[in-house]
Structures are given as C-alpha cells and as structure tokens.
Nucleic acid binder design. Structure first.
Lengths: 217, 217, 217, 217
DNA sequence: CATGAATGAGTCTTCATTCAT
DNA sequence: GATGAATGAAGACTCATTCAT
C-alpha cells in the first residue's frame, strides 16, 4: 500500500530528463499492472515516480500514450531477454527443449512478463493495436524456434511424430498454468516453481502413461 | 400523481420481477468481463438489462456489491457445471483422464469460465475475498479428483510414477495456454480447439520423445 | 460581480426539464458575452442558472455545444424580432427608411444584439460555422429589404441615384458606430441615443432623398 | 556561479536585445487579436517571437502586463498615425472632410486598428483602465478636430446646420460598419472598400453640405 | 540573458449515487 | 417498484508561472 518509492527527503529540484521517462514507465508498469488501465491513477504514477502530475505530460502526451510506452517497454524487455537464447539450434533435442523451457520459467517468474500478460488480458479488448503488436512479435517469433526444434527432432528420429508434435506451442503450454496460478492465487497457494518445472519437463520427455497403460482402451 | 403502480388492477404483465436480478447479473458479467471493474459503467449495465440506472440500486447496494454478485454467480455456475462430472472414478485411467480433459475444454470454450478468469486476473488483487473463495472452491476440489485419479493409476500400474505424476495440475495445465491465447489473441490467431485438444491428450498419453530419444542425454 | 440570480433560499430540489435549457442559455449568454468563449466558466454559468455544474451536461454535451445553443438562441431571437417589421413596403420612402432605422435602434439598444455582435467579434474566427450562419441569415435578409426600398425610391423619384444609393447597407451603417461606442465606452461616454438617431436620420434624409421627397412627412 | 553576464568581454552578437520587446509585442498583438485574453497562449506568443516561454518573463511581469503593453503599443501606433493628419484645418470643408474620411479608411484597412478594436470589444469589460485611456486619447482628440471642421463649415456657410451637424461623430460613423463587417464577415463577404468609401462620402456631402459647398472641388 | 524543467491552481468532464415523485 | 433528474467527488489535462543552471 505504501509503495511510494520513498526516496527519503528527495533533493527537491532534480533535473534529469534522461532518466525520467524510465522512472515514469517503471511506476506506470506497477500501477497499470495493479489497477488496469481505467483504474490506474496518474496521480499515483506521478507520486511513485517522484514528480508532479503535470510533469508526466512533459514526457507523455496522455494516459494512453503512457500506457503504450509502458506496454512497449515491457514487451521490448521480454523480447530482448529471449533473443540471445534462440541463437543456436544444436545438440540433442532433449537438451534444446530443456533449455528453452527453463528459460521460459526464468522469464515467467520475473515480474515483467506477468505484468504484460495481465495488461493484455485486462485491457486487450480495448487496445487491439497493442494486442496485435504483441502477437506479431512474441507469438510468431517464439513459435518459429519451437517448430524448428520439433521438425529437426522428428527428422533425427528423436521425436515421435503425432498430434502433440504438430502443435509447437504444446511445449511451453503447461507453463501458462503456472503463470496464471502464480499471478492470481500467488497469495493463497505458492506453487513450487522448481517442482512444477520438473513435472513439466518430465511430462514433455516421458509422457504420463506407461506403455502398457497406453494401449488399455 | 403517484398512482402508477396500479396495485388493484390487473397485474398480468408483471412476471419478470423475480428475474430482474438475473438479467442484471448477466448484463453485469458481460460488462465487467469486457471492461474490468473501474472500466465498467453502471449505465451500460442498466441499459443492457433494460432498466434505468437508478433501478440497479433497488437490487444492489452499489457497484461493488453488484460486482460481487456477478462474480459469485459466475463461480457458482462453474461449480455446478463441473459437479456431475466428478462423481464416479471408474474405468481405465486413460478413459478417466480423457473424460476430464474433454470436460475441461468444453467448459473453457464456454464464455463463462473465461469471464471468471479474466475477472480474477484483472480484479483479483482488489478482491482478495473473491480470489480466496474461488481458490478454495475450485482449485481445491478439482485437485482432489485429479489426485485420486493419479494415485489410483499408479496403484494400478497404469501411471508411471515420477515428477509429472506428483503434480496433479499438470493434467489440465496445457489447457490454460489455449484459454489465454484464445482470450487474448482470439481475434488474431484462431487456435483450432480440436487439434489443440488432441495434442494435449497425445502429450498426456504418450509424451513427446521416442523411447530412444529419451535416453539420449 | 454579484450577478448570481440569487433566487433567495431556492427550494433545493426543483425538477423541471422544461425550463432548464432556457435558464442555462440565458446564463450562458451573459457569461459568454462578458468573458468570451475561453474566459467563460461553466462553473459560473451553472451557478447563475441555479444548478450544479454536472447538471449542465444533462442538457448540453459540452461547453462548445452550450455555446452553439446560446449563439443560436440569440440569433433566433434577433431574427424573430425583426421579422414582423419587414412585412409591407408601402408608403413614402422617407417613412419606410425612418421606420426601419428606428426599429434598428430599438433592437440595438436591447442587450441581445450587442451580445451576438460581441460574440461574433470575439469568437468568430474560431467558429466559422456560426459566422456563416449569422451572415447568411441576418445580413442577406436585411439587405434585400433595404435594396427593395432603395430601388422603389429611385423608381418613384424619391431617392437621388448616386454612389450612396448603390450601397444599401449605407442606411443602417452609422448605427454601428453607436452600437460599438455604446458597447465599448458605455461606461465612460453615454451617447444620447435619441440625439444620435436624429442625426442619423437627418444625414440619411438629406444625403439620400431628393429635395421633394424630404418634406413629404 | 552567476557570472554568466560577461560584461567585460565582446558583446558582438548582441544587437537584437532591445528589439525583443517589440517582437514580443508584435507576436502578442497577433495572438490577443485572434484569441482574446483568456484564449491567448503565452506559449504561442513566445514561439512566434522566437524565444522561450520563460524569457517572456524577463520582459513582462505576467500575461496581463504583456497584454497591457500590447494594447498600449497598438493605441500608441494608432495615435501616431493620425497625428500628422490633423495639423492644419485649411481649405474647403468638403476637402477637409474628404481627407479625414480617406485617412480613416486607410487606417481602418490596416490590421492594427481592427486589432485594437477587437481587443477593446472583447476584453474591455475586464480592463476598464485600457478602455478609459483609449477613450480619453482617441475619442476625445478625434472629436475635437471633427467639431472644429463642422463649426468652421457652418460659420462659412458650407455646412447646413441641423441635427446631423450637431453630432461630429456622424462623419466617421458609417465607416464603423465597414470595419465590423470586414472584421467579422471578411471571409464570407468582401465589401469593396472603394465603393463603400464613395458611398460614404456621397452620403456625407449630400447630407451635410449646402448645395453650393457640394460642388466646390 | 536565456531557457529547460517542473509544478500548483484551476477547468472541463465523467460517473456512481441519491432523491422526489 | 421504478425512474428522471440532480449532484458531489474525483480524474485527466492545461497553462501561467517559477527555478536552477
């Protein structure tokens, strides 16, 4: 509740056009994340950023522009963080998948991506542009890498062709559950990230059923 | 002047009075779903329900009370729809799992559960009570059934013990991906529900890797 | 300064959708007249009209719409007040001119037309639509009557053809001086309306009429 | 720290400093003319003058002071431009009148005097001082000259005594019509200045002068 | 001298909520 | 019961004005 940055007797008159936008965006992310677009108060954002309400308007044209900047920044951060993981598709398929999934969880746990997701879920309907950009950038790019891994795995005989392998998103899919539960019920139920991750990998690698049980129709 | 009620005459056309709250709640669900709490306009809800704004206050104390009623109703509906699926734990484990998962998708595709989820995600932070109730009722109950199925499967030798089987939520987890993508990117990317469901089941039943590939570390 | 209508312990809750708009428009005319568009405060208008600021929005979409309504009303009033003067073009030219000019002064002295004029002068540049409507309605209509009188006068030998008679607006033109001086310097220099009117008529009679027509009372 | 003034060094490129106020005033006249006092933006004025908003405050204490300066300047300019026309009252009355009226139109057409007038009309109520000064300076001075011409004309038998000759302002009065119409409806109705001027003179000559005086060119 | 940066004091506008009928 | 009318409270946004450099 008292999240106001509290810089402790701030030196009244700071001038630093350089860092302001970042500070505002950080404060904005927090606020939009917690209250959604309509619920967000420029008042609080300004206060968190340690500036006056009017000063916001020196950096962003209006609430919507600020929101767009926040969303952009969050997405950008996400992309950057993923970028260097996707470089080489080498080694065993098992390793590749494991590395990707682990990266995923590392990102998910970070505040940022939950924030993006929550914002997209809450305000998406109102900001088709935002949704579209996010979709184009994230979804498409991630999928291509996954597809490549799967195809290569099938070609190398490491992956069993079948319905699952047709859907590249199936690889990260279970993680979404963790993300949502963490986001919504975080206060009530702490899912152990490591345990969940192991379960996820185990599912991916081995499947659930024993060979015998599979054929028991 | 104020004799409009016509209490002595023929009441004939009075018949929807008891249904009013339902209509309001339905309209409210739609509105809260689309705009979140702060973004929702009592105006629009009233209009959708075919009544005047002031009339809302005859049924609900204020916006928050209406929201609570909407959320309650949605959760209640969800619970009811699941209740009769969980009765008997009989037959092969494979069948049990398949039935549960299919039920899940059927529910997910229905508007209602997306609505709850979106509301929980958007407004959860502000309504801990809501979150807590939902968590207690849904999560807990659902998990117990899943756990039972898994334990029974392991006992019957149909399920391979391991990290995945330790986490009962792993069963429905991938569906969350579908739900979120559908909700957020529905307009931009139509995931084929059937294909995704097959992939989900395939993953659960067989796993991704071939036996040979699994051991190739 | 304390022009607030002061209705003396108003009966708090009056409901009368009928008269409200008129009261608001009256208050608006006063306010826009005195302060121009940007200078006008909805606050004051509401107070003058004896309602709350929010209530304004029940009747007018926004400040601009209110302004448009005020302007429309003022113009409408002006038109109506002139309409019944222009009916018959009969009698001696001298009489016709005298009647028109006297009507003019009567109108000019009324608050309304100064108000329109001031608003047009102050805000015209910003509201081309308003200017255009006013121009089309007022200027055009008045001119036609004047032209008719002059043409008829020339045909009847009562008006000396010449540069002056070619410009119908020359008839009311001097009155504009009175209007402006009255409006701007009213507080410092009280022009005697009657004396000015006599001078105006004297100038017109001698300047326009033929010697014979002058004495035809 | 505050030694920037560099009083000893080479001032070389300092040369417009004294002109700054003039540029600001010019920009201000334009802005106040177009938008009125409340509508005027210091922002735009500064930009027009090619300086920063803060710099305005080096020359003028605040918006009102700037406005006063603008008004003063405009009035001053007007006075100067008239001054040298009023020197000698010699020649035929007809000539005198014609010269005065022509001067009037020449001034009127110039942007400046419209500007003053618009400002007086729009903001006069709020700046009684301004109005008073303008009134004292302009109205009074102009009237004296006109009075002198009329009295001399009557004495010389060139002007017909009568109601019109009692009111010296009747001479320039019609021009006010032109000015206002030009200012307000300029975009919609182009009054031909020359034609209007001829009509004005024709009316004055025939309305004021005795038959004999009329033809004395 | 000049100005970029910052802000307090408004101003319009919206909206949940309350009454009188 | 139902509602048209009204409004207080609050929020986004603007702008004249002030500093520190």
């Amino acid at each position: 509740m008292a999240k106001k940055t509290e810089r402790g007797a701030a030196p009244a008159y700071r001038r630093r056009k350089e860092h302001r936008p970042d500070e505002i965006i950080a404060a904005g992310l927090e606020e939009f994340y917690e209250h959604g677009f309509s619920g967000a108060r420029l008042d609080r954002i300004a206060q968190s950023a340690g500036i006056s309400r009017a000063t916001l308007y020196l950096y962003f044209e209006n609430k919507e522009a600020l929101f767009a900047a926040v969303a952009d920044h969050a997405i950008g951060t996400f992309i950057d963080s993923q970028a260097h993981e996707l470089t080489s598709v080498e080694g065993s398929t098992r390793d590749l998948i494991e590395r990707m999934v682990r990266t995923f969880y590392r990102e998910i746990v970070s505040h940022k991506s939950s924030a993006i997701l929550r914002i997209l879920i809450s305000e998406g309907e109102r900001y088709p542009t935002l949704v579209e950009r996010y979709h184009r950038i994230i979804m498409t790019r991630g999928r291509q890498t996954l597809r490549a891994i799967l195809d290569r795995g099938i070609a190398r005989g490491e992956i069993r062709p079948g319905p699952a392998a047709k859907f590249e998103e199936i690889i990260p899919a279970p993680a979404m559950f963790y993300l949502i539960v963490h986001m919504v019920f975080g206060a009530h139920q702490q899912i152990d990230a490591d345990v969940f991750l192991e379960a996820h990998l185990d599912l991916l690698f081995n499947g659930l059923l024993t060979p015998e049980a599979r054929d028991t129709t």
